[in-house]
Design a protein around this nucleic acid. Structure first.
Length: 192
DNA sequence: TTCGTGATAGAG
DNA sequence: TCTATCACGAAG
Protein backbone atom coordinates (compact mmCIF):
# COMPACT_ATOMS: atom_id res chain seq x y z
CA UNK A 1 0.00 0.00 0.00
CA UNK A 2 2.09 2.86 -1.32
CA UNK A 3 1.55 6.39 -0.12
CA UNK A 4 1.86 9.25 -2.53
CA UNK A 5 1.82 13.00 -2.16
CA UNK A 6 -1.69 14.36 -2.65
CA UNK A 7 -1.68 16.46 -5.80
CA UNK A 8 -3.55 19.64 -6.50
CA UNK A 9 -6.15 17.85 -8.62
CA UNK A 10 -7.33 16.16 -5.43
CA UNK A 11 -8.63 19.55 -4.31
CA UNK A 12 -10.45 20.21 -7.56
CA UNK A 13 -13.54 18.46 -6.26
CA UNK A 14 -16.26 19.30 -3.85
CA UNK A 15 -15.20 20.00 -0.23
CA UNK A 16 -17.23 17.11 1.19
CA UNK A 17 -15.46 14.55 -0.96
CA UNK A 18 -12.09 16.08 -0.14
CA UNK A 19 -12.82 16.07 3.58
CA UNK A 20 -13.97 12.46 3.56
CA UNK A 21 -10.99 11.27 1.53
CA UNK A 22 -8.45 13.12 3.64
CA UNK A 23 -9.37 10.92 6.59
CA UNK A 24 -6.60 8.35 6.85
CA UNK A 25 -4.16 10.51 4.91
CA UNK A 26 -0.99 11.63 6.62
CA UNK A 27 -0.32 15.28 7.25
CA UNK A 28 3.39 15.98 6.85
CA UNK A 29 4.61 19.11 8.60
CA UNK A 30 8.37 19.44 8.71
CA UNK A 31 9.81 16.80 11.01
CA UNK A 32 6.38 16.04 12.43
CA UNK A 33 3.18 14.53 11.16
CA UNK A 34 0.29 12.20 11.72
CA UNK A 35 -2.76 10.48 10.32
CA UNK A 36 -5.78 12.71 9.87
CA UNK A 37 -8.59 11.18 11.94
CA UNK A 38 -11.00 14.12 12.06
CA UNK A 39 -11.84 17.01 9.74
CA UNK A 40 -14.75 19.18 8.63
CA UNK A 41 -15.95 20.58 5.32
CA UNK A 42 -17.04 24.20 4.88
CA UNK A 43 -18.60 25.56 1.71
CA UNK A 44 -17.84 28.97 0.29
CA UNK A 45 -21.50 29.33 -0.73
CA UNK A 46 -24.70 28.68 1.21
CA UNK A 47 -22.90 27.76 4.42
CA UNK A 48 -23.46 30.23 7.24
CA UNK A 49 -20.77 28.60 9.37
CA UNK A 50 -18.07 29.34 6.80
CA UNK A 51 -15.90 32.41 7.13
CA UNK A 52 -16.76 33.25 3.55
CA UNK A 53 -20.29 33.95 4.74
CA UNK A 54 -19.35 36.96 6.85
CA UNK A 55 -15.77 37.83 6.02
CA UNK A 56 -14.85 39.66 2.84
CA UNK A 57 -11.18 38.91 3.48
CA UNK A 58 -11.88 35.19 3.30
CA UNK A 59 -13.80 35.55 0.05
CA UNK A 60 -10.82 37.44 -1.34
CA UNK A 61 -8.56 34.62 -0.17
CA UNK A 62 -10.60 32.11 -2.15
CA UNK A 63 -10.37 34.23 -5.29
CA UNK A 64 -6.67 34.88 -4.89
CA UNK A 65 -5.38 31.39 -4.14
CA UNK A 66 -5.12 28.03 -5.84
CA UNK A 67 -6.68 24.84 -4.54
CA UNK A 68 -4.43 23.25 -1.95
CA UNK A 69 -3.47 26.55 -0.33
CA UNK A 70 -3.36 26.73 3.46
CA UNK A 71 -5.91 29.01 5.10
CA UNK A 72 -4.67 29.69 8.62
CA UNK A 73 -6.49 31.96 11.03
CA UNK A 74 -6.37 32.92 14.68
CA UNK A 75 -9.31 32.09 16.89
CA UNK A 76 -10.47 32.99 20.40
CA UNK A 77 -7.29 34.93 21.10
CA UNK A 78 -5.28 31.78 21.51
CA UNK A 79 -5.46 29.19 18.75
CA UNK A 80 -4.46 28.81 15.13
CA UNK A 81 -6.68 26.80 12.79
CA UNK A 82 -5.44 24.97 9.73
CA UNK A 83 -7.67 24.69 6.66
CA UNK A 84 -7.04 23.66 3.08
CA UNK A 85 -8.64 25.51 0.19
CA UNK A 86 -10.78 23.43 -2.16
CA UNK A 87 -11.81 24.75 -5.56
CA UNK A 88 -14.18 22.57 -7.50
CA UNK A 89 -17.64 23.23 -8.87
CA UNK A 90 -18.26 24.28 -5.30
CA UNK A 91 -15.45 26.05 -3.48
CA UNK A 92 -14.76 25.57 0.19
CA UNK A 93 -12.37 24.49 2.91
CA UNK A 94 -11.41 21.44 4.88
CA UNK A 95 -10.63 22.18 8.53
CA UNK A 96 -8.09 19.73 9.89
CA UNK A 97 -9.37 18.92 13.39
CA UNK A 98 -7.30 16.04 14.73
CA UNK A 99 -4.41 13.78 13.84
CA UNK A 100 -2.97 10.60 15.25
CA UNK A 101 0.69 11.42 15.94
CA UNK A 102 3.11 9.38 13.85
CA UNK A 103 6.39 11.20 13.42
CA UNK A 104 8.25 13.80 15.43
CA UNK A 105 6.25 12.81 18.48
CA UNK A 106 8.90 13.92 20.95
CA UNK A 107 9.05 17.38 19.42
CA UNK A 108 5.26 17.67 19.45
CA UNK A 109 5.10 16.59 23.09
CA UNK A 110 7.68 19.22 23.93
CA UNK A 111 5.74 21.98 22.17
CA UNK A 112 2.52 20.97 23.89
CA UNK A 113 4.22 20.28 27.21
CA UNK A 114 2.13 17.15 27.35
CA UNK A 115 3.05 13.50 27.47
CA UNK A 116 -0.15 11.94 26.19
CA UNK A 117 -0.39 10.92 22.56
CA UNK A 118 -4.15 10.56 22.56
CA UNK A 119 -4.59 14.21 23.51
CA UNK A 120 -1.54 15.61 21.75
CA UNK A 121 -3.34 16.61 18.54
CA UNK A 122 -7.00 15.90 19.40
CA UNK A 123 -8.41 19.26 18.35
CA UNK A 124 -7.77 21.95 15.74
CA UNK A 125 -5.98 24.28 18.15
CA UNK A 126 -3.95 21.47 19.70
CA UNK A 127 -2.58 20.13 16.45
CA UNK A 128 -1.45 23.55 15.24
CA UNK A 129 0.37 24.03 18.54
CA UNK A 130 1.98 20.60 18.26
CA UNK A 131 3.04 21.22 14.65
CA UNK A 132 3.94 24.88 15.27
CA UNK A 133 1.53 26.16 12.64
CA UNK A 134 0.94 29.93 12.67
CA UNK A 135 0.02 32.74 10.32
CA UNK A 136 3.42 32.46 8.68
CA UNK A 137 1.97 29.39 6.96
CA UNK A 138 -1.08 31.27 5.72
CA UNK A 139 -1.44 30.97 1.94
CA UNK A 140 1.31 28.35 1.77
CA UNK A 141 0.90 25.88 -1.08
CA UNK A 142 0.41 22.41 0.40
CA UNK A 143 0.82 20.67 -2.95
CA UNK A 144 4.33 21.84 -3.78
CA UNK A 145 6.73 21.17 -0.93
CA UNK A 146 7.15 17.58 0.33
CA UNK A 147 7.88 18.98 3.78
CA UNK A 148 4.38 20.45 4.03
CA UNK A 149 1.92 18.20 2.28
CA UNK A 150 -0.54 15.33 2.52
CA UNK A 151 0.40 11.70 1.94
CA UNK A 152 -2.22 9.21 0.92
CA UNK A 153 -2.62 5.73 -0.51
CA UNK A 154 -5.30 5.69 -3.19
CA UNK A 155 -6.53 2.18 -2.45
CA UNK A 156 -7.00 2.45 1.29
CA UNK A 157 -10.35 1.23 2.55
CA UNK A 158 -11.41 3.10 5.67
CA UNK A 159 -14.48 3.27 7.85
CA UNK A 160 -15.34 6.95 7.93
CA UNK A 161 -18.23 8.35 9.99
CA UNK A 162 -20.03 11.57 9.08
CA UNK A 163 -21.77 13.61 11.76
CA UNK A 164 -22.49 17.22 12.68
CA UNK A 165 -19.79 19.84 12.83
CA UNK A 166 -18.57 21.06 16.20
CA UNK A 167 -18.26 24.47 17.79
CA UNK A 168 -20.48 26.42 15.40
CA UNK A 169 -23.78 28.17 15.92
CA UNK A 170 -25.11 28.40 12.37
CA UNK A 171 -25.77 25.72 9.76
CA UNK A 172 -25.32 23.17 12.51
CA UNK A 173 -27.40 20.43 10.96
CA UNK A 174 -25.16 19.39 8.06
CA UNK A 175 -23.29 16.11 8.64
CA UNK A 176 -20.02 17.55 7.42
CA UNK A 177 -17.65 16.40 10.13
CA UNK A 178 -15.75 13.26 9.27
CA UNK A 179 -13.97 10.96 11.69
CA UNK A 180 -12.16 7.65 11.47
CA UNK A 181 -14.47 5.17 13.16
CA UNK A 182 -13.23 4.09 16.56
CA UNK A 183 -10.18 6.36 16.60
CA UNK A 184 -8.95 7.29 20.07
CA UNK A 185 -7.34 10.45 18.73
CA UNK A 186 -10.38 12.58 17.81
CA UNK A 187 -11.52 15.67 19.74
CA UNK A 188 -15.05 14.40 20.33
CA UNK A 189 -16.08 10.84 19.43
CA UNK A 190 -18.84 10.44 16.86
CA UNK A 191 -22.23 9.41 18.18
CA UNK A 192 -23.15 5.98 16.90
C1' DT B 1 -20.13 24.84 33.23
C1' DT B 2 -17.16 29.02 33.07
C1' DC B 3 -13.88 32.15 31.13
C1' DG B 4 -9.64 34.21 28.81
C1' DT B 5 -8.05 35.88 24.59
C1' DG B 6 -7.48 38.98 20.14
C1' DA B 7 -8.71 39.52 15.21
C1' DT B 8 -12.43 40.88 12.26
C1' DA B 9 -16.24 43.37 10.62
C1' DG B 10 -20.27 46.17 10.87
C1' DA B 11 -22.66 49.80 13.11
C1' DG B 12 -22.74 54.43 14.91
C1' DT C 1 -14.51 54.26 18.34
C1' DC C 2 -17.41 50.58 20.20
C1' DT C 3 -19.23 46.01 20.34
C1' DA C 4 -20.67 41.32 18.99
C1' DT C 5 -19.03 37.32 17.53
C1' DC C 6 -16.12 33.41 17.25
C1' DA C 7 -14.63 26.54 13.08
C1' DC C 8 -11.15 26.67 21.11
C1' DG C 9 -9.17 24.66 25.26
C1' DA C 10 -8.35 24.15 30.10
C1' DA C 11 -9.87 24.34 34.51
C1' DG C 12 -13.38 23.31 37.78
Amino acid sequence: MKKEIVRRTFFWRDPLTCARELIGAELIWGRCGGIIVEDEAYLAENDEASHTFSRPSTRAFVERNKAGAAYVYFSYGAHWMLNVLVKGEVNGFVLIRAIEPVRGIELMEKRRELDDQKRLCSGPGKLTQALDITDRHHEMDLCADPRHCFLRSADAILDVVADARIGITRSVHHPWRFTLRGSQFVSVPAKL
